[in-house]
Design a protein around this nucleic acid. Structure first.
Lengths: 194, 194
DNA sequence: GCAAATTAATGATTTATTCAAG
DNA sequence: CTTGAATAAATCATTAATTTGC
């Protein structure tokens, strides 16, 4: 096997740099289209997939916060020993508003330097915005495509032809229908070490 | 507007029935291809997308477990007052092994009644399982497609042509580059009762 | 009987936790 | 130990039930 299947993505320095810069400039949860763009651009510097970008932002955000939390926790450590029920670490469920991050709002320009940046914030606001099921604001990407229901649902308006039988539990086509074991974890369901 | 934009998916009884039956027969975390199939089939009974299927299984599993946990908690309630460090609710991180679910292994037939079910369970099992980067066991779907890197990664083996420029922070194309505000968590529902 | 107000379910997102490759 | 990948838990938000006043 000359080329290791590369079990997992290994970001190149350029990719990493760009990602970090984007993060610093405020990007935190890119949506599908944004991820597409980012991926497209980063793919110039090496192999990369959309999920990599997605996960990277997820992890980076989480770990940055975690790091921050740790620091704060340290400070709290010597501020009180009895756990105050008021708010051990209150604004953790907020969107991490670290006062030292002047994110987005201006840095965006850095990202959008040479682009058109068409006014789309309220672009087609005239009409009562049609969700259109095509470009909703899915923060969770991937969904927009795949499934083909988009095509089916969009193309076939009313499923008039309901096979009014006892609705046989659909004929799965292929792909080993074996799941249940939630994930690949537990190599053989006996690790149990935890 | 004759057709409500339908902000969220509303499963038809048929869809629900099928999904539940599938769940009962053991399906818990369908992967991309499975979700595709399920979606394709269910789309016969009404509008549906892959993400709906995905979310449904996520939620159903979680809530089933939650329900179960509550019940167990109730029982524990009068079994011990001092929290035994052994296992307050031990196998909660496992894959919910409810002993009364004779899931999958045979019920699969029910699901696969009229199909070909080509031998793919261990189709290319001869080799030491090749991750193959094309049909990995992504439990999180959507990832396999989209971004086109899948194609690129699979087709283009070594990215030899790295444009060694000063890596300008890529020109985002369009789509409002506004994220950061994680969600629109206003208060509105102050039910709180939960 | 019905429509507004409340409550309960549940679809959709976000966050935290965990696992494993390097 | 760092960090990409994946899953589960927590949360939000919208729809359906249900209740309540008329």
């Amino acid at each position: 096997m000359p080329q290791t299947p590369s079990t997992r993505w290994c970001p190149t320095p350029e990719q990493l740099m760009i990602l970090e810069e984007m993060y610093r400039s405020g990007v935190r949860t890119p949506n599908a289209s944004q991820i597409q763009q980012i991926t497209a651009h980063l793919s110039l510097y090496g192999r990369i997939e959309g999920k990599n970008v997605f996960y990277w932002f997820q992890n980076h955000k989480a770990r940055e916060r975690q790091k921050l939390r740790r620091r704060l926790g340290r400070q709290h450590q010597l501020l009180h020993q009895s756990e105050g029920p008021s708010s051990p670490t209150p604004p953790l469920h907020n969107q991490t508003p670290p006062p030292n991050l002047l994110y987005q709002g201006c840095l965006q320009e850095v990202l959008t330097q040479g682009m058109n940046l068409v006014g789309k914030l309220e672009a087609g606001e005239g009409q009562e915005e049609e969700p259109a099921a095509s470009d909703a604001v899915y923060t969770q990407p991937w969904m927009t495509m795949m499934d083909g229901s988009a095509a089916a649902a969009t193309a076939v308006p009313p499923p008039c032809c309901r096979p009014l039988k006892t609705l046989d539990l659909f004929p799965t086509k292929s792909t080993g229908m074996k799941d249940e074991c939630s994930s690949s974890k537990s190599s053989s369901c006996s690790t149990s070490t935890n």
